[in-house]
Design a protein around this nucleic acid. Sequence first.
RNA 1: GGACGUAUAGCUCAGCUGGAUAGAGCAACGGCCUUCUAAGCCGUAGGUCUCUGGUUCGAAUCCAGAUACGUUCACCA
Length: 597
Amino acid sequence: MSIEFHLKNVLLEALASLYNYSATDAEATLQPTRKDMEGDFTVVVFPYTKISKKSPEQTAKEIGEYMKTNLPEITGFEVIKGFLNVKIDTHIWINFLNKTYPNQHFGCPRKGLNDEVYVVEYSSPNTNKPLHLGHIRNNVLGHSLSRIFEANGKKVAKVNLINDRGIHICKSMLAWQRWGNGETPQNSGKKGDHLVGEYYVLFDKEYKKQIAELMADGMKEEEAKKNARLIQEAQEMLRLWEAGDADTIALWKMMNGWVYEGFTQTYTQMGVDFDRFYYESETYTTGKKFVLEALEKNILFQKPDSSIWVDLTDEGLDQKLLLRADGTSVYMTQDLGTAALRHGDYDFHKHVYVVGNEQDYHFVVLKMVLAKIGFKWANYLHHMSYGMVELPEGKMKSREGTVVDADDLMEEMIKTSREISQELGKLDGMSEQEATQLYRMIALGALKYFILKVEPKKNMVFNPRESIDFNGNTGPFIQYAHARIQSVLRKATEQGLHVEGDLPENLVLDKKEINLIRTVRQFTLIVAEAAQNMSPAVIANYLYELVKDYNQFYHDYSILKEEKPELRNFRLRISELVGRVVKHGMYMLGIDVPNRM
RNA sequence: GGACGUAUAGCUCAGCUGGAUAGAGCAACGGCCUUCUAAGCCGUAGGUCUCUGGUUCGAAUCCAGAUACGUUCACCA
């Protein structure tokens, strides 16, 4: 039983014995004592003054006395302004270390501890242009969340729904067909997704020109947008695609192939991966069946033009189209279908969609419609809604060319990482290959941490200059702590220092040392909380706290030069444990940590 | 207009289910490397927690309203 359990019990006893009051579990609350105060656990006694009919100070004193005499682990207490701060015998903390040290699973991923399957859909790009900063937040969040679930014992399936069909892809195809002169990634040396993206931009440029011309001839803007030759040709191409026209399909396959090669490179560089890809071209019709069935059962209704709708006015929402008059699917229909398909594939207990908050409404409706149709698992769907990424100058706008390209950004950061590393010159003797790996590790650590430390649902400002900073609350700061710990441990081994067996319980430790143990001990709770809240930021902020504590400890105490062996052993142990927590915590953020930097 | 979200230091962000003097980093200024990695540590300065009211022994935190900003309410995805 944990010390918290015993403390709580004795607190309940105290209330019963002193004031003849049987408190509920919730009324007996315990919190960790603030770092700047003396003590380990704090009881806030204000709520008890009603039953004690005494001042907070007097009540705290009485409860403190009772607890101390009835629980030997309590070595003392202090009352400050109605707060009862209880001090615990150090051997409790040493015990924790002795128990935890051999447990390699402490804070480690505990894959497949139970059989619940969680599906996490993330990334889900369109295939008409390369990935940008917004996608980076999506990918990094989805990847991290998957690992957090795994660490909590879930089986996780990471899935990516590729939006590989539709008018936007046709725009790129049309522009390439018309102005491409047979340009390919091979003959131009361009990355496939970037090349396709260029033609998408080119389409837009030419399309705008046509609109302007039509408007100059007196046409209204709205009409000009519909009547421009280019857009009509793109729509015709989409029709051909849906009809299975061989040439169109061939062109589509070729250009999508280029994009996939590009995406694969970007994903590899980013360090994210997937268990399964779904393609919209293969699934976009699957929802239709369910819609028609539901119509039979009168769950949905049909308008005179024969389009099919769901009525959500009773739920306080609008009517929503599910099938067009010509029988083709819309976005909602497709998502209904893929959700059902996935449930068939995985029989999931939770299905998380990592999708931006501009689609909040869509997912509310999706869940409602699935429930209405009669799928009990509709409740298992969860939209992990995250905020937009903005630049210091404001929103990213593709039209104004302010979009930060994912590949460019990563490359830029790796370059900076190399420059700073070489300037610091700590990598002498490291092979070129190792060093190159390290630059990437640091750059990606900086980028991912910068994004993940912010609460997902909040919009965030991405300042390229600050993200590339490697000091303060950053990924490299945490990576650096890991490298220093490993360096100490290496030296210990070189000097033949091995810590064996348990640490003696009667060690005398300083406040900062105990504090470090307490912070390490929290890790398990943090991992659970991160999964509960679906927030990698919980882990990021915890790791920062931990590393700050460790850096202080590292600065204030000698480890290898400590002369008392048992104290030196303790410091080596706690260092190793902090190192492990950092490594596993960073793993959950999708960030690697180096042994040297 | 309806719905949803956000508002904390000059900037970027923490602040758990209400608890002690509201915390970090960056930027500014000052100190610490003959000692385990200074990508580090310590210090100074910086606040009407958007505003108003309510609940409470106690509110940045909960509730109501106001204001500002963002998103959304497409036969786009």
